[in-house]
């Protein structure tokens, strides 16, 4: 079976033409780099995405901090993951890269801060 996919690894958006036989990918065409082939295989067999969202911060300069999953999580977990993170409240200060959740919904993937949120009344670095 032949399937058309658009690679989303980078903004280039290569149009991939993928052959699938018995739940295995037999050929990938149209990719500009090897990451496209890997993407096609993963996308058809176990699609995963990086999650970006926000988490609540208490005592910070702003009410939230932006966060991301430090790697991809299964696509179908995206909404559950946001709902889970919404129940947590962090305490300022939060620094860029700080691990906030070590193992997001048993995916083995951590959640890290992508911005800083220092304590109120403290000057931010910039």
């Amino acid at each position: 079976m032949k399937q058309e996919l658009i690679c989303i690894i980078c903004p280039r958006g290569c149009h991939l033409s993928v052959e699938v036989k018995d739940k295995t990918v037999t050929s990938v065409k149209g990719n500009a780099c090897p990451r496209g082939e890997a993407y096609a295989k993963k996308e058809l067999l176990a699609p995963a995405r990086t999650l970006t969202t926000t988490m609540k911060v208490e005592g910070g300069q702003t009410p939230l901090v932006s966060v991301k999953s430090q790697g991809e999580i299964p696509k179908e977990l995206m909404i559950c993951a946001v709902q889970y993170l919404d129940t947590l409240t962090l305490k300022a200060p939060v620094l860029v890269g700080q691990v906030l959740v070590e193992n997001l919904l048993d995916t083995g993937i951590a959640v890290v801060a992508t911005a800083e949120n220092l304590e109120q009344n403290l000057e931010p670095v910039a």
Partner: peptide
Amino acid sequence: NETKGARH
């Protein structure tokens, strides 16, 4: 509402 917590 607020985005965080409110809907739960």
